[in-house]
């Protein structure tokens, strides 16, 4: 059986908000290491990979591996009934038809109990190769969100060019063109506000802004975001949170 108690409902609520528009149904794979999810969007252009480690829960117990098939829109509706500060407990039997969710207020004067039907999902797991990326860019998550939103007003695509001079996001469309260049900065007081660029070679890749804007729905989960890129491979966008991560992969646009 699974029993996982999470001190802050907000973590699960924000995570669902960050993935539910990209993915409709997914298996939550539960093991003694924690709860993970890997799912592609319908067009097979983007992939979400979530890990909530066991040590992020207190307590966490999972006797045997379980795949909980969940409609993310339904889970999101149920989670709407939880307050951000509530304590959430997830429970499932060994061969479950339902997921049980309990929301307790901080002072335990209100306990809400929900049961959600599970579904059978035949899910393809992609083998993601370990990659040493040529460019690793860490920047404030809010900055990345703003750049994606601003450039999506100009074009459907953005070209990200990482070089020793900085990282440049550039778009060109019918109304004109625009670009934002970030230089490396160091803010020792607030590391989350720094931009760092680690580069082994220059990288230039073009991506659909529709997906990137979608990824930035994870902004409330983390102060910083890391973009990892190599020429001719998918982009990895990672939001690290306490007790896990939310990663997105995005296939590039390639020249015809």
């Amino acid at each position: 059986m699974l029993e996982a108690r999470l001190a802050q409902a907000a973590v699960l609520k924000k995570t669902l908000d960050a993935i539910k528009e990209l993915v409709t149904d997914a298996n939550f794979d539960c093991s003694d290491g924690g709860i993970s999810l890997q799912a592609m969007d319908n067009s097979h252009v983007a992939l979400v990979s979530l890990l909530l480690r066991a040590d992020g829960f207190e307590p966490y117990r999972c006797d045997r591996n379980l795949a909980l098939g969940i409609n993310l829109n339904s889970l999101s509706k149920v989670l709407r009934s939880a307050q951000n500060e509530d304590i959430i407990t997830l429970k499932a039997a060994d061969d479950p038809d339902n997921l049980s969710l309990t929301f307790e207020s901080q002072n335990q004067d209100r306990i809400s109990e929900y049961e959600m039907k599970l579904m059978d999902i035949d899910q393809e797991h992609l083998g993601i190769p370990e990659t040493a990326y040529a460019a690793v860019i860490t920047m404030p998550a809010a900055e990345f969100q703003r750049i994606c939103r601003d450039l999506s007003g100009i074009s459907e695509s953005v070209t990200i060019d990482a070089s020793k001079d900085g990282v440049k996001f550039a778009s060109a469309g019918d109304i004109g063109n625009g670009s934002v260049t970030l230089k490396q900065t160091h803010n020792p007081e607030e590391p989350a506000l720094s931009t760092s660029i680690e580069l082994s070679e220059s990288v230039t890749l073009t991506f659909s802004l529709k997906y990137l804007v979608n990824f930035t729905k994870a902004t409330p989960l983390a102060g910083a975001v890391t973009l990892q890129m190599s020429n001719d491979v998918p982009l990895l966008v990672e939001y690290k949170m306490e007790g896990g991560y939310l990663r997105y992969y995005l296939a590039p646009k390639i020249q015809d």
């Binding site: 097979h44 252009v45 992609l126 695509s157 998918p234 296939a251 590039p252 390639i254 020249q255």
Partner: peptide, 14 residues
């Protein structure tokens, strides 16, 4: 600009 690739061309399908 360019054609949208899919992840299947980069990652191993099961």
């Amino acid at each position: 600009p360019g054609k949208q690739a899919t992840l299947g061309s980069f990652f191993a399908m099961p």
